[in-house]
Amino acid sequence: MIESARRPRRADHTARMTKTVLVTGATSGFGRATVERFVGAGWRAVACGRRAERLDALVAALGGSRVHPCAFDVRDEGAMRAAIAALPDGFRDVDVLVNNAGLALGTAPAQRADLAQWKQMIDTNVTALATLTHILLPRLIERRGVIVNVSSVAATYPYVGGNVYGGTKAFVSQLSLGLRSDLHGTGVRVTTIEPGLAETEFTLVRTSGDQAASDALYAGTSPITGEDVAETIWWVANLPPHLNVNRLEVMPVSQSFAGFQIHRAK
C-alpha cells in the first residue's frame, strides 16, 4: 500500500466558507497588502485606518461587497469602540485579527529624542493594540480565531535611535506570548510577525517625509515588501487549527545582525 493511502487525508483548512479578517493600518504597506491578499482569496475584510480617502480607494479597487472600511485613529478609543460596535452583520464575526497599525517616529538617541513622539509611539503601538485586542477577544474565542500581531526585529535587536520604538515592539512580542498562555484551551492561535528591513511608508513617516533618507536606506538592498508580509500572514492564518506559530522573524537576505558598539576614549 502506498504511503498516501495509509494516512488519513487532512482536512482543507483554507476558507471554504467565507471568513472575515480585521486589519488595522490598512491604508498602506503591510496592512493594505494584507487586505488585498485575503480579499483576493475570497475572504471579507474590515479595513481600518485613519485616512478615509485611502480606505474608499481600497474599497473601490477590491469591491465594496467584501471590504468594509472603518476610518478612525487607533489612539481614539471611543472612535474605535464605535466603529467595532457598528460593524454590519456580514463583518461582525471576526475570524482573524491583524494588529498591524504602528509607527516609528524620529531617529535621535534617547537623550535628544522628542518626548511627544515617544508618547505617540506608545499610544499607537502599545495602548491601541492592547485595547482593540481586548475588545475583540470574546468574538475571537467564540470563533476559535487567530491573532496576528505585527512586531519588528527591533523588539529583539537594539540600535541607535531605536529606543522607545524598540520598546513598544518588545511589548507587542511579549504580549503575544502572554495571550498565547492565557488563551490556552480556547483554540485561539496567536502569532507575532517580526519583519526586518521593509520598504513601505515606514521611513517616510519616521523622518517626517524625507524621501532622500528613505531612498538611501533601501538603495541596493532588495528589502521586504508589503506583499511578502501579507503572504506570510496569509500562511499563518490558514495553517491547520492544531498548529500555532508562536513567533516568526523575517529579514531580507541583505540584512543580518550588527556587531556590538565599542566607545574608545581619546
Rank of each mutant, 00 (worst) to 15 (best):
L115S: 09
L197D: 14
C48F: 04
R112E: 14
Q255V: 01
P252C: 13
E227H: 08
R16T: 13
I122F: 09
G90N: 07
E194V: 09
H184R: 08
V188D: 05
S222P: 00
E77N: 02
E227S: 05
R264M: 10
I147H: 11
H13L: 09
H134A: 12
L179N: 02
A11V: 14
A154M: 02
W234R: 12
G42N: 06
R50I: 10
E53P: 04
S222N: 13
V250Q: 09
S173I: 00
D215A: 11
W43C: 01
F38W: 11
E3I: 08
Q211L: 07
W234P: 02
D210K: 02
V21H: 06
D114L: 07
V96Y: 05
E199Q: 12
D76E: 08
D93T: 09
V190R: 11
D228Q: 08
V96K: 12
A198R: 05
R6H: 05
R7D: 05
I135V: 15
A237P: 12
G161E: 10
I233K: 09
A57Y: 08
E77H: 03
G63H: 13
E227W: 05
E36K: 09
A154Q: 08
S214E: 05
H242P: 02
W234G: 00
F72C: 12
M121F: 00
A86N: 15
A116E: 15
A83E: 09
A11W: 01
S254I: 05
G64H: 04
E227A: 14
F72I: 11
G145D: 10
R54P: 10
T191V: 07
V23E: 05
D95S: 05
A33S: 14
E36W: 13
G187Q: 08
L140Y: 06
S4C: 10
T124Y: 02
A86L: 10
A216L: 04
P241S: 11
L136I: 07
D228P: 03
Y165S: 01
A237I: 01
W118I: 06
S222G: 01
D89R: 15
L217D: 01
N125F: 12
M121R: 03
A41L: 12
L136Y: 08
D56R: 09
R44S: 11
P158L: 03
G63Y: 04
F260Y: 00
T14R: 11
A219F: 14
H68V: 10
A170T: 06
I224D: 01
L105E: 14
N244D: 03
